[in-house]
Design a protein around this nucleic acid. Structure first.
Lengths: 340, 340
DNA sequence: GTGAAAGCGCTAACAA
DNA sequence: TTGTTAGCGCTTTCAC
């Protein structure tokens, strides 16, 4: 059925090795022969079977990517970065959606391990022990998770939180809510770290709420709790939650930003999709995907080198200020001071 | 390095064929032997190399998915459906992002052809000739594109457009703009078909505008043109454009829905992410992905059957009415009547 | 019920 | 520069 290397060899009247070489080491075959081979291959529509090639070379030219949920814009942005970079370096992507289930995460890695040169795990939520068991199965790179000894692309979420808090403090906010997302989120942890470090310096009192589902509904739910604590500003886990917060505030007649200011986290221009622009900490998800692919490939190349330390790559985050943050009104400030 | 079938065979003190059988035809091996084999395999962490298996069986257990842009919520929803369904039937997904480039689309299919049992092409924008050339390379299933002889999952966009127009007509709108997206979009074509068929019946005059980029900016741009034509309602190519339209209308002081009503198309609850809920035609993207995987697998099974006709699967669309559509005000209606 | 051997499509020595 | 051969990890006849 499918056209193989033998067909080409026959057609060009050469041996299979010559055909193979014409593709993999072009300048080791006579120019005329090569031309002929490539032409016949073209005519026959021959494409080398990469699986078979991988079987003998040990390199598949495939890389695996595991995301918690492709439909989540955060992760589809990451995935975009992975596929884009993979293509640039002539690799193909094996995708698995873990459906937000930590067990599935581990399982799928096993399923693709043999067919890929390595796997990029996007914000894996799985238990460290499971993660440890995966090491050795196949080369791994993590995104937004810091596990001992594993190469990783890390986004400076702690610094993002710091920037956000300093921004709010500079505006005069003194009582700020932090809405947590999923408990297993490393990025979430980091934000808390950054927040707790920055709070005393900024002389801001932080109210830690959550965990909440990282969704519109989660934001709605969280908004009421935050309001009850008399804050003048809210840091939401992500843009989805932030929009939920905004919606709930509007529904309750709370004015943004004069009564309460709101900050989210995003990568894509999600804010451009809402009619209310949102101050956000920009997380470079797509860049993270690209970096992870590069890191994986680098580690593979250095594979021979025994003490090639697995690297961490830090990516900066950046605050983008828009109209949902402003100094608190006298009123709001007073209420916050009174602890409401 | 990796643990192979030989390791297991050695460990269990049986031949490789027995190990193989223990996995692929369990009841053809003695229960005790099988148990032993599986146990050793478990201990060693053995996972069959699916690529090697594919080499001999001709079935890889992988399916390819090509999308124009993973970061587009429409397509990430489709992809979600594909990965979810693939997992259920124990298949793994090979993903390629065509970066909205028709040439890349054709190219990537070639790159994965040999490693997959078939490919799902999501809303392919490539030229029919290129598509034709791909047939025979590997089994194909299209989503939202109707090409002679190819199996496809089709969403009834024409009917969605009809529903939207009837809804608007029932509210009293008589002059409605249709904002087209990319020219190569089959779904876009279909909407036009539905619209043109429904317009005379509904006694509505449709103003066809575009093509516009299917983005927020595209909506902004289109809104002004639509306004200039004095319509009382706007059908946007997708939700992104719709939100762009809403934003521009707000900026120009045009009231929604009293001056102008707006309808979009979506799958995900994108409307829940905006502070302005949007009347939309719901496109079942995720369901489409699932259906495509099923269709592909069905066709493969029936592969032996010579006259197994490639099937089309139609999925219904559904209008979801919300507060951005309402009867036009007297004012708006009069202006529209005057052709503005 | 189990093993030995051939071979899937390809690359990598080794010869020529 | 090119051809011959072995073998990657697996399944599958065909004997036993």
């Amino acid at each position: 059925m499918a056209v193989t290397i033998h067909d080409v060899a026959k057609g060009a009247d050469v041996s299979v090795s010559t055909v193979s070489r014409a593709f993999t080491m072009p300048d080791m075959v006579n120019a005329a022969t090569r031309r002929k081979v490539l032409q016949v291959a073209e005519e026959l529509g021959y494409q080398p079977n990469r699986a078979a090639r991988g079987l003998v070379t040990g390199k598949t030219g495939n890389i695996g990517v595991v995301v918690p949920d492709v439909a989540n814009p955060f992760f589809s942005a990451m995935l975009k970065g992975c596929t884009a970079r993979a293509r640039e370096v002539r690799h193909v992507v094996f995708l698995a959606d873990a459906a937000e289930d930590p067990r599935v995460e581990a399982e799928v890695v096993g399923a693709m391990a043999k067919q890929v040169d390595g796997v990029v795990l996007c914000s894996p939520r799985m238990h460290p022990d499971h993660l440890a068991r995966l090491v050795g199965t196949t080369p791994l790179v993590l995104i937004n998770r810091d596990e001992a000894g594993l190469p990783a692309v890390l986004m400076d979420s702690a610094d993002g939180a710091r920037q956000a808090l300093e921004h709010l403090a500079a505006l005069g906010h003194r009582r700020v809510a932090h809405l947590a997302g999923p408990a297993a989120s490393w990025a979430g942890e980091q934000r808390l770290v950054g927040l707790r470090a920055a709070a005393p310096v900024c002389e801001v009192e932080t109210i830690e709420l959550g965990p909440f589902p990282p969704t519109f509904q989660g934001g709605v739910q969280a908004a009421d709790l935050a309001l009850a604590r008399g804050v003048t500003a809210i840091l939401a886990f992500n843009d989805l939650m932030a929009v939920g917060v905004l919606n709930r505030l509007a529904a309750r007649g709370v004015a943004v930003p004069s009564d309460v200011s709101v900050v989210g986290y995003d990568d894509i221009e999600m804010s451009s999709m809402t009619t209310v622009p949102l101050t956000t900490v920009r997380m470079p998800m797509e860049a993270g995907g690209r970096a992870a692919v590069d890191l994986l490939l680098d580690n593979l190349d250095a594979g021979a080198d025994p003490d090639a330390t697995p690297t961490r790559r830090w990516l900066p985050t950046q605050l983008i200020v828009r109209s949902t943050t402003a100094p608190p009104s006298q009123d709001a400030a007073a209420r916050a001071l009174a602890g409401r």
